[in-house]
Design a protein around this nucleic acid. Structure first.
Lengths: 214, 214
DNA sequence: CATTGTTGTAATCAAATGATTACAAGCGAT
DNA sequence: ATCGCTTGTAATCATTTGATTACAACAATG
């Protein structure tokens, strides 16, 4: 459906190949982190050779920065759309916050986006990636504060839930849903309306893993 | 004062050396993550040779697992102490939640603890570390739910704030305090009563870095 | 003082990995 | 067709790094 290994070695325009690599990198970086991901894994996921990945982006660091920027861009775009819709509907800040929350949760459909962001946030010590990650986080805060017009406390609460959301996804806690009672309750209570989507994603992921092994 | 490079090559009992290594590893793993940290960096931080680190724990993975377990243990101990104190004082669940929150925030005095935990949470894909991290997270949830007696929603809100707390520390956002207006407000609003502690820690860290360079 | 176990390191290994080089193969324009 | 640009890989490099080995220094014990 979405992005299997597909396309094995045919000639494809660089711009299109670039998108494939970015999609693959988003998944791999999101799953293994910046250091844990290898350019070879990204290449295999994109169905091309490792040197091509490096040449296309110059370095692994540049590739990650590009993934980070894309993720940030997708997120800010989604937030601004939600804010515009909220303004058009004449909602109060409470409703606006909820609407943005929905937009955020929708991004889970591509795990790579939220997880690559989260992985970036844990790289604060890195001189270049860390700086970019801080900048991105502050941009999100700024949008909610000054474009959505939410109170500081409201934004902090929102971001808090977002971080738990990301953490549970990174932890693969949904895999324990229905297995462990505490996990089930925690996941239930965290993902709420997006529970079905989340469980569906992890089901697919597990099935894929089993198929690969079997 | 706390843990500089100290003790250069003297003979020290294995048990004590073990603690030094664990303290060093907690810092290094918290800062660079499991993959990004090297046994050599841990060794240098502990003031010993790299092979000794590996031999003492068998493998880097075992070392991380031990750091993770220690961090979890410190945290659960602090929580249980707070819960006991709250019960002794006959507080309601609201006050109990606040008290546990204080206990959590106090752990920031050793950045390694919270950051190593957080780094562990992002390793959900790892068969062994991921499993241990899930188990640890659920143990925390279980304590708050069944020992502190908090409602599920209350616990989720609590954990949410904790994850934002950790994320901002990992991002080194406090370094932008007083520099960037948005960052200042965000940090202010997230760390609240622990603001002084947090800023103090980052000041020391920066000073140490400058001293090392200069 | 020899013996034995503990504490520690220098040297080195093998594997992983990001990056580079050289080269091949397709495709469009003249 | 062939020249030149784009798309792609195989082979290889240099570094990093977790782990291993061999050995040294010291301390306790008899």
């Amino acid at each position: 459906m979405s992005s299997m290994k597909e396309t094995s070695a045919e000639r494809i325009p660089a711009a299109e190949r670039r998108e494939q690599i970015l999609a693959a990198a988003s998944q791999v970086f999101g799953e293994r982190g910046y250091v844990g991901a290898t350019t070879d894994l990204v290449a295999k996921q994109a169905g091309i050779s490792q040197p091509y990945v490096v040449r296309m982006f110059g370095s692994k660091e540049n590739l990650f920065l590009e993934v980070l920027s894309r993720a940030l861009d997708t997120l800010t775009r989604a937030f601004r759309a939600a804010i515009a819709a909220s303004h058009a509907a004449g909602e109060d800040t409470e409703a606006r916050g909820s609407r943005i929350g929905l937009a955020y949760a929708d991004l889970i459909s591509d795990r790579g986006i939220l997880l690559s962001l989260m992985q970036g946030f844990l790289l604060g010590h890195d001189p270049v990636i860390g700086e970019r990650a801080r900048e991105g986080f502050l941009e999100i805060y700024d949008i909610m504060r000054n474009e959505a017009g939410l109170e500081a406390d409201h934004v902090v609460t929102f971001l808090s839930h977002g971080m738990l959301f990301n953490t549970l996804v990174a932890l693969r806690m949904p895999e324990a849903y229905g297995v462990d009672a505490m996990a089930t309750e925690l996941v239930d209570c965290t993902f709420r309306t997006k529970l079905d989507t989340v469980l569906h994603i992890f089901e697919n992921e597990n099935a894929k893993g089993s198929a690969a092994r079997g």
